[in-house]
C-alpha cells in the first residue's frame, strides 16, 4: 500500500473525495480487497467518534413513516426504486424478461414477437475514453431499454442510477437504479416524449439511489438521443 493509497483512504473515509477522484478510487476499491479492508479498518476506528453522540429517544412518528414506506409497492413504483428490487435477481433469460415486462405492464419486446419501435436511441460513452458503453432505447410509453456493453465495476455500497435531462428547466430526472449491468427495461416516470439531442447519463449513487433526487455521484457514461432512421 502506497502513501498515496493511505492519503486517499483518509480522504475517502472523511467524505472528502469528489468527482473524478472519487470515481477512480471507488473503481480501485472494487478490485482491491486489501484496500477495502484498510477502508473498513479506518471506518471502524473513526466510527468511535460517531458513537460519542448522546443517542436521542427513538421517535415513534419516524418509525410510522418508515413502516408506511415499506408498504409501497417496489417494482411498479416510480423510479428510483424500480430497478433495485431484489426480484430482478435470481432469474435468467426469458424468465427475467417476462417478469420485468409483466411487472411494469409492458408485454412486448424482442423475445415476444413484434418489437416496438424506439422513438429515440442514445449511445452512452464512457467519460474518460469516450468508448461506447451503454445503448439506450427510449419508447413512447416513457420506458427505456438499457443494453450495457461495458460499464465500470461499482463498489458494494453504490448503485448505478440512470438519468435523463428532458430540458434544462426541469433538470435531471431519475429513470431508475440498478445493480447488475444486464439488458433491462426501466418503466421511467411520466415525461414528455423523448427529443432528439436529449441527454442520458448514468452516475454512481449511494445504495438506494441519490438521496437528493439529483445526480450526486460521478458520471460514468453519457450520450445524446438521436432519432433512428
Amino acid at each position: 500500500m502506497t502513501e498515496g493509497d493511505r492519503e486517499r483512504i483518509g480522504d475517502y473515509v472523511l467524505g472528502l473525495l469528489e468527482g473524478a477522484d472519487l470515481a477512480a478510487f471507488e473503481q480501485q476499491l472494487a478490485s482491491d480487497p486489501e484496500l477495502r479492508m484498510a477502508v473498513e479498518r479506518l471506518r471502524g476506528h473513526l466510527g468511535k467518534l460517531d458513537d460519542t453522540v448522546e443517542p436521542l429517544p427513538a421517535n415513534p412518528a419516524l418509525w410510522a413513516r418508515i413502516a408506511s414506506e415499506l408498504d409501497t409497492p417496489v417494482v411498479t413504483a416510480a423510479p428510483p426504486r424500480a430497478a433495485n428490487d431484489n426480484r430482478w435477481r435470481g432469474f435468467a433469460g426469458i424468465a427475467a424478461s417476462l417478469l420485468v415486462a409483466l411487472s411494469i405492464g409492458y408485454l412486448a419486446g424482442s423475445n415476444f414477437g413484434q418489437a416496438p419501435q424506439p422513438l429515440m436511441v442514445a449511445v452512452l460513452l464512457t467519460e474518460g475514453s469516450a468508448e461506447p458503453a451503454v445503448l439506450v432505447e427510449a419508447f413512447a410509453d416513457d420506458s427505456i431499454r438499457l443494453v450495457p456493453l461495458e460499464l465500470a465495476q461499482k463498489p458494494d455500497d453504490r448503485v448505478y442510477q440512470v438519468w435523463t435531462l428532458p430540458d434544462p428547466e426541469t433538470g435531471p430526472i431519475s429513470m431508475g437504479i440498478f445493480e447488475d449491468p444486464q439488458t433491462m427495461r426501466l418503466a421511467g416516470p411520466n415525461l414528455p416524449a423523448p427529443q432528439s439531442g436529449q441527454l442520458y447519463e448514468i452516475t454512481l449513487e449511494p445504495t438506494g439511489g441519490s438521496p437528493t433526487g439529483r445526480p450526486t455521484g460521478p458520471i460514468l457514461v453519457k450520450g445524446f438521443a438521436k432519432t433512428p432512421l
Binding site: 492519503e7 483512504i9 483518509g10 472523511l14 479498518r41 476506528h45
Partner: peptide
Amino acid sequence: WVRRGTVALQECLS
C-alpha cells in the same frame, strides 16, 4: 493537514 493526519493515524492504528 488532513492527509498527513489520516496517514499518521492509519500508521499509528495498525
